[in-house]
Design a protein around this nucleic acid. Structure first.
Lengths: 223, 223
DNA sequence: TTCAAAATGCAACACAATTCGCGTTAACAT
DNA sequence: ATGTTAACGCGAATTGTGTTGCATTTTGAA
């Protein structure tokens, strides 16, 4: 009923974030120990989660399964992540930042095409809807709330901002890209509307990119 | 491990669907009994689910809670719906068909505005993300699969088709509206990007509608 | 009215998920 | 190096979820 700060901390927890917390107010209560064994445990658990997702597809692994596979005791996982949802979210955020880079070349159409293609492809992998699911679960969790979600999304949005700045697309905001690219791709994958054949994928990607271009042109002309 | 057909049946089950099944091939195995007590039980359970969602916000009620509230024994609910996800999906589909009509007046902009406004408003109610969550869970469920999801979505898409036909918007498909309206609104609500003030809501709705118009114009001109 | 069986209620049951107390290991500040 | 204590492992206890067999009620049709 009380231990919320830990769950929130590990939820954000990339490497830097954990270190950042250590240098903060945690000092008052007692030292935190991100190094050595703790990092090793974290890595083992994350690895196990990824492997289980790879195996089982969309079905989310339970904490017990993760414990068995990683060799880390279940009680430890419960203590650090509190719930399976928090663990999955932690892994999902890390994964998305690794595998889904946002290109910034100054050519809006090229950047969007590359990014969207990558995104569409990633939704077809086993567990491709896992990130969306983790985000949605987090959004529905009162412990996290709107603020927590926006903290999770903020880094990606600022990347989008850089892409837009580089190409001078002042008519568009990161939220536009979120609505015109991310949202349709994820929900399209959800209802199985995405094409399976590779050549149709190109057409799908082109269509989404065209939508963004259309909106940009419309806003330029219509004042 | 075997009883899938029942769960699938109740998943689709609006009133007509249930009656339709009774007149079908179910006759071979044994009579089904949609009337009287069965209907009463179903209504009580649905009512309890809605009330619990109203109370608890985004947190999904468990089958045990629904049983306690509805006065229907838990075993009965387990037998009819199998899992909490299937129950929530059942209620969510029914709800969405009731509260979120798709207008068809022949004026595309007006229809879209009315529908989008309704949609944005509904995502702000307690449990507003419940439908998205239920759909996503269903999509991740191997028992249901892409086919099952498309059966759920199909009626809504055909309604969209009517809206487009009535206004002569041949450049657009129902899937376009799904991607340009539904997806951004739901995912916008997810990340808390939707405005809270009523007057900003109008601007948000107008922007989404403008995006659709922009895409339509773009496709008309760019051949 | 009468009857076969579908649907429900009930309680015991099996099993998975989560928590807890406590002893052990190992960061890391000194 | 050395001491403090955070983080971990372990197993038992607790709680929650889902299942099953059987008696009872109720439906729909003969």
């Amino acid at each position: 009923m009380s231990g919320d700060e830990r769950s929130t901390a590990t939820t954000q927890g990339s490497e830097e974030a954990t270190a950042g917390l250590a240098a903060d107010d945690m000092r008052a209560v007692g030292n935190t120990r991100p190094g050595g064994r703790t990092a090793r445990t974290r890595a083992a658990v994350h690895k196990a989660v990824r492997e289980l997702i790879e195996q089982n597809g969309e079905t989310s692994p339970s904490i017990l399964e993760v414990a068995a596979r990683s060799g880390v005791h279940a009680a430890t996982i419960y203590r650090r992540w509190r719930t399976p949802e928090a663990l999955l979210l932690d892994v999902a955020v890390e994964t998305v930042n690794e595998v889904s880079p946002i290109p910034v070349t100054g050519d809006l159409r090229a950047d969007l095409t590359a990014y969207t293609h990558n995104l569409v492809t990633s939704t077809r992998r086993p567990g491709g809807l896992g990130f969306l699911n983790a985000m949605l679960t987090a959004a529905r969790n009162p412990e996290i709330g709107p603020t927590g979600i926006q903290e999770l999304v903020a880094p990606r949005l600022s990347h989008f901002q850089r892409m837009l700045d580089a190409s001078g697309a002042t008519e568009l905001t990161p939220l536009d890209l979120f609505g015109l690219v991310l949202a349709p791709v994820y929900l399209g994958a959800m209802i199985g509307a995405l094409p399976q054949a590779p050549d149709q994928t190109e057409r799908e990607v082109a269509e989404i990119v065209d939508n963004v271009i259309a909106v940009r042109l419309y806003r330029s002309s219509a004042h």
